[in-house]
Design a protein around this nucleic acid. Structure first.
Lengths: 113, 113
DNA sequence: CAAAGATACATAAGAATCCAATGCATCCAA
DNA sequence: TTGGATGCATTGGATTCTTATGTATCTTTG
């Protein structure tokens, strides 16, 4: 199943923060691959959406960066700043709560974890 | 808790379709109140978002309308068209699936229904 | 060895979606 | 009679994401 793109809206920042919470440091491309893998190809982040988001989170002081060279190729690693860690927890719990509410509203039977 | 508005994005159409699936016919204001009630005030649809959405769904042939007068006040009822009923089921099940995926991705413990 | 595909960054134009503000009008209760 | 609730609607702006494009390197395969 491919999700209509509308659904993804609003969750991208949360996804990115969560990925970085679980993995210390990651680079953009790695994030797209990890999400793709974890969601069994259901969610494929586009670069046009991801990079601006990473830059925005960095501008907000939630992420820090370090550049590495793999041969001649640049790789830009992102990590959560202290405030980013707080924000990550906040966002994930907000989304969890939102999902509970939607479940209630839409009368959806959710499988227990 | 008040959800950051980003989260609501992408779910509004689904919410509207689901409300009409459960209630045969409803008018705009009634939908806002029903959603507010069912979500214990967590989701409050704004009129600036709701009415354009209702009009869009009507233009797509998913909703039909009938106007009633309560005294001198106009009330515009919306109902699902046959294709709207199909769309409602489709959208709700898509959102349910999406929520499962997000649960997986975000490692969220969801309470069983 | 050449070409294609994967890796890796990035931006820009446009579409879509939603919010806040505003407007109009009626009804009811204090 | 005035404020709050009911009920419709539109507009301007912000935000977010998609599509398309661009650059460059590395790896695999025919």
């Amino acid at each position: 199943m491919i999700y209509s793109s509308e659904l993804i809206k609003g969750t991208l920042k949360t996804i990115v923060l969560k990925m970085l919470e679980d993995n210390r440091k990651m680079y953009g491309y790695e994030i797209t691959q990890k999400v793709k893998e974890l969601t069994k190809d259901r969610i494929q982040l586009t670069e046009g959406a991801l990079y601006p988001t990473l830059h925005a989170l960095e501008n907000d002081g939630l992420l820090t960066t370090e550049t590495e060279y793999i041969g001649k190729r640049v790789r830009k690693y992102y990590s959560l700043s202290p405030s980013g860690k707080g924000k990550a927890r906040e966002r994930v719990s907000e989304l969890a709560d939102f999902m509970e509410t939607m479940k209630l509203l839409l009368d959806i039977q959710v499988k227990p974890a």
